[in-house]
Nucleic acid binder design. Structure first.
Lengths: 326, 326
DNA sequence: CTGTTAGCGCCTTCAG
DNA sequence: CTGAAGGCGCTAACAG
């Protein structure tokens, strides 16, 4: 069932049907005639033929490191909601944390499959930049920023600083920051710098330990930490959750003996007991913003190269506020 | 940069280049010549033109109800891993729990976009079946089964029964089952039936209460239950997590005063304290199996209409086993 | 082994 | 308002 069939059935030419389909000028009579036929046959134009001509697919590729990341899911949700509104479809590609797959996805997606790409990255290498510059499809970076690529990021430094100050105000004896590797500039560097700055303001200098984004690893890493400190600022909520588990395992009471906080605003922080203090980032809105910017680029409009989102402190009850210093 | 350009540069015809591209017989000499040109130009064939001819896209659509579902993510991960191996790309469409969007996705995806569809559903209506039969793309159902559509499901009845027996063996005073609505045949009906059967075996008849898949709702729903029973079998891990939270809020000790178990094998069940007993379903493997079957259908091979996966009991420590009845 | 030819289904001038 | 003709980039006979 193609345009010729419809044309034949309606006894008009293909071009008339094409015009009918694309809002060209067609007399009411022929319009009705074609209408009826399209209805009964259930005809719909072949998208490949359309794309072949138009060189647009109305598809946006979204590259994500993991499927089971709360942040990535929320970002996608936000992006998808917006994209759906403007008639784009989202093609999600999971790279399972493999950086080669990430580069590859950039190439294969751009290879005339999608009109633009949303890259949710944890780390930006020169390879990434190179790939982004090689491909024709526009790219918007989410979560990490780069001078050469439009980016939408969280305000990691300020979020860190706020958390640092919140802990700094209390009279904790031994504070530690449990961070992640610095290849992740946003979380590994900016967020940490913020925390240190905030604590610094109250003349506190925490010990700094490192672990990964993995929850189980965090449990192990925290194993020794929970007994040594009375306050742990964790780079992510997952690390904070792992820390809480480790505390439980050693019968350390939170927040009485140990105060814990994380970053992210994951749902799970509210489910555990005690609920974990955290800084909530507007992931959905971030995705939406990034998608909007991408579409603007595609449409030839101008955008801010760097967009920094807001954040919010969620108090909950995993921090002992009894000894406020103010 | 298209096939004609390459042909011109290599001073051969388009068809020769096409053969080169598709493994047709080409002399070593011309092969080398074209090779070089393809290398330097970075040419790659236009996929729309290819699809226009071939009527295949090597894309598989995956329809999921929510992005933030552990089960759905695992299933996708498994499917994606397999599909990647066989050179298919996965196009994930999130329907945000809207059944209309689900139907719509079925139609738009099939509309010559994908070669097949994986439908992770929570509920199958006649509309679904109708849509599936209207579209040309083959569909494999995951999580729910239907006589008319190839399906891959969990063994909900047996899993429920095992859990029922485990609880039945103990001398609990008041057992309740916290289920979900029956529109979900797998979880709402089969799983419940299994639990009741298992308990029945020990002459136990539990009270049955209902809530939704939402964690926050479960907390509320469990609020009154945790004081009335000494054992709660929850239809999902999320409900179990909500129940645990409610127990904490009322200072009820788990498992000393209250035993809790869920279904699903979510990671979070191991993170909370105490870790929750659960039945773990092989979601990744489920996704892989479904993807394999879908590809087989596409290739014209035959498959089992209904595939039932295995499961495993994860003991953890949220059940009080001190009063075994055996 | 290679070139010619004819579409795949659609859109878009260009005439009428 | 409508039709004819050509081309988007690729593949697949069909000859040679």
């Amino acid at each position: 069932m193609n345009i010729s069939d419809i044309a034949a059935m309606a006894k008009v030419s293909k071009s008339t049907v094409s015009r009918y389909l694309n809002g060209g000028s067609v007399s009411q009579k022929t319009k009705d005639k074609i209408d009826k036929i399209v209805q009964t046959t259930g005809y719909s134009p072949n998208q490949f033929a359309q794309s072949l001509k138009a060189k647009r697919t109305f598809m946006i590729g979204a590259i994500i490191p993991r499927l089971d990341s709360y942040a990535a899911n929320q970002i996608l949700e936000g992006a998808d909601t917006y994209l759906r509104e403007v008639k784009y479809q989202t093609l999600i590609v999971n790279t399972s944390q493999s950086i080669e797959q990430e580069i590859e996805a950039l190439y294969t997606l751009s290879k005339n499959k999608v009109d633009g790409i949303l890259l949710i990255a944890t780390q930006i290498t020169k390879q990434h930049i190179e790939a982004i510059q090689n491909i024709k499809a526009p790219v918007v970076l989410i979560g990490q920023s780069d001078a050469h690529v439009p980016s939408v990021i969280q305000n990691d430094f300020e979020a860190g600083r706020m958390m640092g100050e919140i802990f700094g105000k209390q009279n904790f004896k031994h504070i530690a920051y449990v961070g992640v590797d610095e290849y992740d500039k946003a979380v590994g560097i900016e967020r940490k710098k913020g925390v240190l700055t905030g604590l610094q303001h109250y003349n506190q200098i925490p010990d700094v330990h490192y672990t990964t984004f993995d929850l189980q690893q965090a449990v192990k890493a925290a194993d020794q930490l929970v007994t040594q400190y009375d306050a742990l600022i964790c780079a992510t909520d997952n690390i904070a959750l792992g820390t809480l588990k480790a505390a439980y395992q050693q019968n350390i009471q939170v927040p009485k003996q140990l105060s814990i906080a994380g970053f992210g605003g994951y749902n799970t922080t509210a489910i555990v007991t005690p609920s974990l203090a955290t800084i909530s980032f507007p992931y959905k809105h971030t995705g939406e913003k990034a998608a909007q910017n991408l579409i603007r680029i595609i449409n030839g409009d101008t955008i801010e190269q760097l967009e920094v989102m807001d954040f919010e402190f969620i108090k909950n009850n995993s921090i002992d506020f009894s000894e406020s210093n103010e």
